[in-house]
């Protein structure tokens, strides 16, 4: 497999602490979907205490246990500017679950303790008394494309969006951001946050390709992503939609 083409540089933030919901599946999807098109992914792992490089085309944050997420939040708060500058420069950001919460202004825990976020997304999260758990199906409008997105959610946080970002999708099945307003996730520019794991990208390849297109654009490569044979992806996606009792 040729990977001599342009390279997308991905900053994987806190892979040792934010990896609870199989986040490496999302990285594998980015990697393979580039490789299958003769492109390459260069992954820079950024851990506790490391500087966040500002020259990545794409940043990824996954979900972690409460204890790990707190450690990350304390580390990240002083580096948020690097991430914000990169995002303002057009780099893509995908943040899932705990990572999504860290993209907001703050997370208020059950005991009232407040954890500051990076404020890349205009949202706030408050811990609920119970967890919102289960399969999710969304309809999503993103970057001119419309489609369904399937995944799994498991979060105690109730996230409410401000006026500076839009929800990622409308909930057809599941709880979404807070179990009340019928929306899930948040988007602002090329920064996408969502509670959906499963992992998110394998069963939603069009979403993966949208993010990759942004990252390629940021890298300066003028490349159209060729279509791939997504038979298995479509079949897994359709199965998830059907199991949710919804028609495709």
């Amino acid at each position: 497999m040729s990977t001599n083409g342009p390279v997308v540089r991905l900053g994987h933030l806190y892979p040792d602490h934010l990896n609870i919901y199989a986040d490496r599946g999302n990285i594998a999807v980015f990697q393979r979907r580039l490789e299958w098109r003769g492109l390459a992914l260069d992954v820079v792992e950024v851990g506790l205490g490391d500087e966040i490089p500002e020259d990545c085309n794409l940043y990824y944050l996954g979900g972690g246990q409460d204890r790990d997420q707190l450690m990350v939040a304390q580390d990240l708060v002083g580096k948020a500017d690097s991430l914000r500058r990169a995002a303002e420069g057009g780099a893509a950001v995908l943040a899932v679950c705990g990572g999504y919460q860290l993209m907001g202004h703050s997370y208020v825990a059950a005991n009232g303790e407040e954890m500051a976020g990076t404020a890349l997304l205009d949202l706030e999260t408050t811990a609920g008394t119970d967890r919102l758990i289960g399969d999710v199906v969304l309809s999503v409008d993103l970057d001119g494309a419309t489609g369904t997105v399937v995944g799994y959610e498991n979060h105690a946080g109730r996230t409410r969006l401000g006026s500076e970002c839009a929800p990622l999708g409308r909930v057809h099945k599941g709880h979404g951001n807070n179990g009340e307003d019928g929306f899930e996730g948040a988007v602002s520019g090329r920064c996408v946050g969502t509670y959906l794991h499963g992992p998110l990208l394998p069963k939603n390849p069009w979403l993966a390709d949208t993010v990759l297109r942004w990252a390629l654009d940021h890298s300066g490569a003028n490349i159209e992503l060729e279509p791939l044979d997504d038979t298995l992806e479509r079949s897994a996606h359709a199965t998830a939609v059907a199991r949710a009792g919804l028609k495709r």
């Binding site: 599946g25 594998a28 393979r32 394998p202 298995l232 992806e233 079949s235 897994a236």
Partner: peptide, 20 residues
């Protein structure tokens, strides 16, 4: 089964050796 199929596809398994 379909989730496993994607797991193996993204691990790099040859489709000819896989049955779902």
């Amino acid at each position: 089964a379909h989730d496993l199929a994607l797991r193996f596809r993204y691990a790099g398994a040859d489709a000819a050796r896989m049955a779902v």
